[in-house]
Nucleic acid binder design. Structure first.
Length: 885
RNA sequence: GGGCAUUUAGCUCAGUUGGUUAGAGCGCUACAUUGACAUUGUAGAGGUCACAGAUUCGAAUUCUGUAUUGCCCA
């Protein structure tokens, strides 16, 4: 693709406009297949995208996450690795089903009116309609994914793999069915995993209710409960065996208020004697702890709820009412009947469904579980021993905590959208089922297991439930390469290199991928996990659709350019820390792009003359800038190795803005109207190209654009996107140090000019009493930037002059006509004050025998040098002060 | 309640094994404008490193305690 000669350089707009440019280059990259990957001899660099929900839309979290992945992938590609970034989407069982149900309801259709197949047709329709929007949006961001590899967790091959995995784990005895207390979502009508429940403190009441002791005239005990609506399900009262207050109740029975049903009083040291009244009502069907107590004491279990949270026939007169209405009604009834002792305000943790926000109801139900203890072991060990590195490493702690206390995973969900559990029931008995891939295989197995050779397909009934979404996504790094079935690609791309994700899904997803990785590949699914922060608004709130506090990423990119937004996102996102998002950051990114654009415009405005000799100052500037680029390249290697992307970008930002634009270009820039020598011009473009390469992973669009302006790069092989990363060349350390002194000098001269209103066009003479470290090699540069007519060496102070110190050298600029002596004196006095303070602290150390005796010699030598430097500086300043009168 | 983190400039963050009077970006203030860029330039102000102890010749850095904010688990 060509840019050159389309317009004359000076007709380039002064303001960089990313909009048309970005689309153009993305199309070009796709057209030339730069993002495609096939196994070859090169080292693979693989990243699998955390698959977004198939019907989701791009939010700021995706922007951050995918920007980071793209930076890593693009850099790896330029470093000559076979970069492969696999995109795709997740079917997001519960979230998608909820949306489909919602849409059907709007059309007046209830899920319960549809057959499973009809419902799934609707779900697929919805998926095809909205699916992949988010992937299109990622293209606008510049994501360099291999789109030919796009996967969906419900693709046929993927689906198959998930089913096979279930069967395999079942056959290994790791998947089992059990009645357990699960987190029941009465709105979505499904069980949820612990991770899908959000616990929050909520205000409520603690009800003190009295129960009559059976067979007594007027004896009572009082319990405290937050859930009076469950009293119809009470099957015991529990007290602490050593609680002296209740010894007289041992062996007695109590009567449930309102119903009068008799229940035993049991003893268990589980009871916290300090809490409430010290008496506990036991409702085994509706509380996890009570369930355990019930099992232990052989109590009856009375389930009083329907699946939707209304009371069933066990609820007596409350049958059919919603649980929260019952709470109110029972409150009144207990009060009216004299059972309510009192209520008090109480704050406790209430669990709500992540998806529907419904209050979770603990519920006994028959579910499928995956036994985790053994599976988790290698996954724990290999994170702890660093085989898989977490960035930042602090997350290892919570990972370990979770993995050491891992509970069995409830993998079934009472939904239709997802991978249907491959279990077929043939009888009423508890183990009257088989697990098999197809109905006919199931039939064969069932005939054998049941001994009923005449069993027919019609006698089989497949489990209605599907698997937890994470039971498919835990296979992602393997199954995107069809790795459960064929070694062809997975052996090349797996283990993947880096995973970029949010700490929120460390347990949902990361831990389980590691488990699956060791179970099915015998090795880790990735080498590094980079945990991004959570994008928050300026008030520190998490960005969410419901709060409406999230900017629209597409709008942002239209406004600031994708490059600008990428830079904005990365500027303040140290790994693992939250990112308080501020649009100003994108503005800063846009301004940066504009700066780069104008630096380029400047180079294009120069008239190049091959006859002109190169100035010394230009040669000096080029040598220095080359060293700086190399220095930054080294820093970048270290920063990328530690995933310190924010710092990497900031280092690059300063290299470009400060070093290249403010110092280098100012130094080589010819006087207005004069031509530039060819040597300097060529070197400048060469430096510019290195800079473009370094910038490319962060700002792919603009760098590609300028890359094509700089040279005629019309063949596909010449795109910046696949250009080799610059190699680190030699660094002149002395020059780098000298240049810092040089900068200070320039600053000082500028100050003298400013404070005395000496315009830049009036040239000055600078007198130097040079000491160690004086940057003599940069004199030409100094003359140019400060507009000096000469630099003169001197060995004594120059009378009637402004003076300043830099390094171990003194400098003097003779007064012109108008001079503000007082201001000059004040300035010198301020400096004397500063140095005196410094000297005092140094001398304090040196006069301390214990310091001199104990500190390492190099430190003491350093302090002595500081002392002598400070003393000589003071000398100079004091005598100058004297001169000024 | 238990565990893990956090606390450094107005904001967001760096600060490697203890060793220059603690740095950056943004913001702020002042000044500048025909010649790349006002989406700019130059300069400046701004910090008892949460607090209290301890260790050390020396602590933002190590230890103890307190407070703070956040996350995870119960």
């Amino acid at each position: 693709m060509r840019n050159r000669n389309e317009i004359a350089p000076m007709e380039l707009p002064t303001i960089y406009d990313p909009n048309t440019i970005e689309d153009k280059w993305y199309a070009y990259w796709l057209e030339n297949g730069y993002f495609r990957s096939k196994p070859d001899d090169r080292e693979a660099y693989t990243v699998v995208i955390p698959p977004p929900n198939v019907t989701g839309v791009l939010h700021m979290g995706h922007m951050l996450n995918n920007t980071i992945q793209d930076v890593l992938v693009r850099r790896a590609r330029m470093l000559g690795k076979n970069a492969c970034w696999v995109p795709g989407t997740d079917h997001a069982s519960i979230a998608t089903e909820a949306k489909v149900v919602h849409r059907l309801r709007e059309k007046g259709i209830r899920k319960s009116d549809l057959t499973r197949d009809a419902f799934l047709d609707h779900a697929w329709e919805w998926t095809h309609e909205h699916g992949g929007i988010i992937l299109e949006q990622l293209k606008k961001l510049g994501a360099s994914c291999d789109w030919d590899r796009t996967r969906f967790t419900m693709d046929e091959a993927y689906y198959d793999g998930v089913i096979d995995t279930f069967i395999d784990l079942f056959n290994k005895g790791l998947i089992y069915r059990d009645v357990r207390m699960v987190n029941w979502d009465p709105v979505a009508l499904t069980a949820l995993s612990d991770e899908e429940v959000i616990h929050k403190e909520e205000h409520g009441l603690l009800y003190h209710v009295r129960y009559a002791i059976a067979d007594t005239e007027d004896e009572w005990l009082t319990i405290a409960t937050t859930r009076p609506e469950t009293i119809m399900g009470d099957t015991a009262i529990c007290i602490h065996p050593e609680d002296e207050r209740f010894v007289h109740l041992h062996g007695k029975e109590a009567c449930v208020p309102l119903s009068g049903r008799r229940i035993p009083i049991v003893l268990d040291d589980y009871v916290d004697r300090e809490f409430g009244t010290g008496c506990l009502k036991v409702t085994p069907a509706h509380d996890v702890n009570d369930c355990d107590l019930g099992k232990k004491h052989g109590l009856e279990t009375i389930d009083i709820f329907h699946a939707n949270g209304t009371l069933n026939e066990q609820g007596g007169k409350y049958e059919g009412m919603d649980r929260f209405d019952v709470r109110k009604a029972i409150h009144q009834d207990l009060d009216a009947a004299g059972f309510l002792v009192k209520t008090e305000d109480y704050t406790n943790k209430v669990g709500r469904s992540e998806r529907t926000d419904a209050v979770i109801e603990p519920r006994l139900s028959l579910q499928w579980f995956l036994s985790m203890k053994e599976l988790a072991k290698p996954a724990l060990d290999h994170v702890m021993d660093g085989t898989i590195a977490f960035h930042p490493p602090k997350f290892k702690n919570s990972y370990r905590h979770w993995m050491e206390n891992v509970k069995d995973w409830c993998v079934s969900r009472q939904l239709w959208w997802g991978h249907r559990i491959p279990a077929w029931f043939y009888g009423e008995e508890e183990d009257g089922f088989v697990v098999a891939k197809t109905a006919s295989e199931a039939l064969d197995a069932a005939r054998i297991k049941s001994g009923r050779a005449d069993m027919q397909l019609e006698d089989l009934r497949q489990d209605e439930d599907v698997m937890d979404t994470w039971f498919s996504s835990w296979l992602w790094p393997i199954q995107v390469f069809d790795g459960l079935k064929t070694e062809e690609e997975v052996s090349y791309y797996y283990p993947t290199a880096d995973l970029v994700t949010a700490p929120e899904i460390m347990f949902f997803w990361v831990a389980r991928m590691i488990i699956a990785g060791y179970e099915y590949r015998g090795e880790a699914p990735f080498k590094n996990v980079y945990y991004t922060g959570i994008v928050r608004d300026q008030q520190g709130r998490k960005m969410s659709k419901s709060l409406g506090n999230s900017p629209d990423p597409i709008e942002l990119m239209n406004q600031y350019g994708a490059d600008g937004v990428r830079v904005g996102m990365l500027l303040t996102s140290p790994a693992g820390n939250d990112l308080p998002f501020d649009e100003k950051l994108c503005e800063q990114g846009r301004n940066f792009a504009n700066k780069i654009w104008n630096a380029f415009r400047l180079t294009q405005s120069w008239e190049v003359d091959h006859q002109v000799e190169q100035r010394d100052s230009s040669a000096q500037a080029i040598a220095w800038m080359k060293s700086r680029v190399n220095e930054v390249l080294l820093e970048l290697d270290a920063q990328f190795a530690e995933f310190r992307l924010s710092e990497a970008l900031m280092g690059t930002y300063r290299l470009v803005w400060d070093d290249f634009c403010s110092w280098y270009l100012e130094l080589v820039k010819p006087t207005y109207g004069e031509p530039l020598d060819a040597k300097t011009y060529d070197a400048t473009l060469e430096l510019f190209e290195s800079i473009l390469k370094i910038l490319h992973p962060f700002m792919p669009f603009q760098t590609e654009e300028i890359w094509h302006w700089i040279g005629d790069r019309s063949t596909p092989a010449e795109a910046l996107c696949i250009a080799p990363w610059p190699t680190v060349g030699a660094m002149d350390q002395d020059l780098l140090v000298h240049f810092e002194t040089f900068k200070q000098l320039v600053s000082e001269v500028r100050n003298v000019r400013k404070e005395n209103q000496i315009p830049h066009r009036d040239s000055l003479v600078l007198h130097v009493d040079s000491g160690e470290g004086y940057p003599a090699s940069l004199e030409a540069a100094l003359i140019k930037l400060c507009n000096l007519s000469a630099i003169e060496q001197t060995k004594e102070k120059v009378p009637n002059s402004f003076g300043f110190l830099a390094g171990r050298s003194s400098f003097f600029i003779p007064f012109g006509e108008a001079v503000d002596v007082d201001a000059e004196k004040e300035k010198i006095q301020k400096e004397i004050q500063h140095i005196t303070g410094f000297l005092k602290s140094v001398q304090g150390k040196l006069s301390n025998e214990r310091f001199v005796g104990n500190a390492p010699e190099s430190v003491v030598v350093m302090e002595r040098k500081k002392e002598s430097d400070a003393l000589s500086k003071l000398d100079v300043l004091n005598s100058k002060l004297k001169d000024l009168g």
